[in-house]
Design a protein around this nucleic acid. Structure first.
Lengths: 193, 193
DNA sequence: TCTTGTGAATCAATTCACAGCT
DNA sequence: AGCTGTGAATTGATTCACAAGA
């Protein structure tokens, strides 16, 4: 979150930023910001604040975003399409490096300079390219199967859009984005007024 | 999350489910499940577990999902397209009730039995239809402006896909889905091994 | 015997508050 | 005078552990 806010601050020409400003924009407490940032080292200057560019660099380094990570996208349906065409990954440290689907009519479609591959080639391509992150945008009923294959092929992090809880070994990290669940949470709060 | 797991359990014909089973599937502690569910009332039976259908009904009621909430979708780009065509909202308690975009060539496109409207008509339509939830799938630089207009029109919950932190009054709830941030979190953990 | 519901205990996150540096 | 960095205090969430019900 701070990475995002700092990108924005830098683009607006800010040279330094205080924990209070950063906290306001991020919607958290200023002490929280300072405590969080102190875990990276002591990059602030008392009486002044944090140097925006320097802090952005340190956070990027800590997050491992000084390179662009290759990510595999599995599932080229509605959501897959949207993700494949999403322009925002690059500046945040990622690039879609391979796309897969099972449907024959989707295989061979081109997106930028990528070609959609068949799911059968998943293992081969992932291992060849050394890809360890994947976005799972397939229907729920097939998500676990695909996840298992991803893991066998060396994937260690999965961003899961299927509305199922994936079962994975300890060394694999999963984050789940469930659009309906987000709406449910919102509607619950709304009701409470 | 329990709502989702219970839908799945019910579809597989489970009649009762224990807190331990529910916890395993959800990836949390069994005591956590019982404490969470106890907030809804005492719907479990000692020695047996929870009645799946009954519990699903109670959770649905608590979450306000016994009806299908109308949701406005603003932004009919890649992501907007994907969301508009997403089939999963219905069973989770929502329906896209209106779609808006600024681009003339998108206005008038049809999705199911909806027609994409122009952003200029936002206020009129939202008020007429009594819509209080919105999905924001517009570029970051315009997200705050659109959010302000949504709020004026009576929207009280926003699901924000734009990679910016929205500034909203206290009575408005926002949830943010930042795809790049999810990947960043994953890559951070990956690096740590 | 099995499993819930829940106080008590533990663990973790957040915020306060201020010394100390610029 | 302004703002960081951080112990201490507080608040909140999670887990334990067990009495009690089916």
């Amino acid at each position: 979150m701070y990475h995002l806010v700092l990108i924005d601050a830098a683009s607006q020409g800010a040279v330094t930023i205080s924990s209070e400003k950063l906290a306001d924009i991020s919607g958290v407490n200023a002490a929280q910001v300072r405590k969080d940032l102190s875990h990276l080292g002591t990059y602030g200057t008392r009486g002044v604040g944090y140097d925006v560019k320097h802090l952005l660099g340190e956070i990027s380094r800590e997050l491992g975003l000084t390179q662009n990570w290759p990510v595999a996208l599995v599932g080229f349906g509605n959501l897959g399409h949207a993700l494949a065409n999403y322009q925002g990954f690059d500046e945040r440290g990622f690039r879609i490096a391979a796309i897969f689907d099972v449907e024959k009519k989707k295989v061979g479609e081109r997106v930028g300079d990528l070609t959609v591959g068949h799911l059968d080639d998943l293992e081969k391509v992932l291992e060849r390219e050394g890809i360890t992150m994947a976005i799972l945008a397939v229907p729920g009923w097939t998500a676990q199967d695909v996840a298992d294959r991803l893991i066998v092929s060396g994937v260690r992090s999965i961003l899961n859009f299927a509305p199922v809880v994936l079962n994975v070994p300890d060394e694999v990290w999963v984050r789940k984005v469930d659009l309906s669940m987000e709406l449910q949470i919102l509607s619950f709060y709304s009701q409470r007024k």
